[in-house]
């Protein structure tokens, strides 16, 4: 498994954790009597900032841990080459394209639901959900391409 592949896996795990947290909080809100705008705005802020922070911190931590594991396994101080070559860049682009398409479909569906009479809060809630889901789909497709070869 290359460094890039490990990095994508770490991102995938962090996105899954964030999505899990988001859905849990939304379900809790519904059980407590429905969506409250003040609570929902706070949750969106946490999710957006959390996604960025967890992703960055997760990658830094994974970098450190993987370097230590690599040094122990190879018994050398030689640093593993963290280069992104042309195949990595192409896989990254394909993943981004798939994520973009997923997000676009998600935004369309969210707007459709709003047009059908649902409140704006539901629409924005769904847009946040689809933005994280799109990243998950993009990461999964990248891992699939890495596993397949291209």
């Amino acid at each position: 498994m290359s460094y890039q592949e490990k990095s994508v896996t770490v991102s995938l795990v962090s996105y899954l954790l964030i999505l899990g947290y988001y859905l849990t909080r939304i379900v809790t809100m519904f059980q407590d009597g429905g969506l409250v705008s003040s609570q929902l705005f706070g949750l969106w802020a946490i999710v957006i900032v959390g996604t960025i922070l967890v992703n960055i911190l997760g990658n830094i931590l994974a970098n450190i841990v993987l370097s230590i594991v690599h040094a122990i396994r190879t018994r050398t101080n030689k640093v593993e080459r963290y280069i992104a070559d042309e195949r990595d860049k192409l896989i990254d682009l394909k993943g981004e394209k798939i994520a973009y398409i997923t997000f676009s479909v998600g935004v369309f569906l969210s707007m459709l639901i709003f047009a059908l009479g649902q409140p704006a809060l539901v629409m924005f809630g769904l847009i946040i959900f689809f933005s994280i889901s799109a990243e998950i789909v993009g990461s999964i497709s990248q891992i699939f391409l890495y596993r397949r070869g291209f």
């Binding site: 290359s2 460094y3 592949e5 280069i83 070559d85 042309e86 195949r87 070869g149 291209f150």
Partner: peptide, 17 residues
């Protein structure tokens, strides 16, 4: 100047460089 995984993919004709 590439990763070993890219060489593996090229060698097994899964990726055209």
């Amino acid at each position: 100047g590439v990763t070993r995984q890219t060489i593996i993919a090229i060698e097994s004709a899964k990726y055209s460089p």
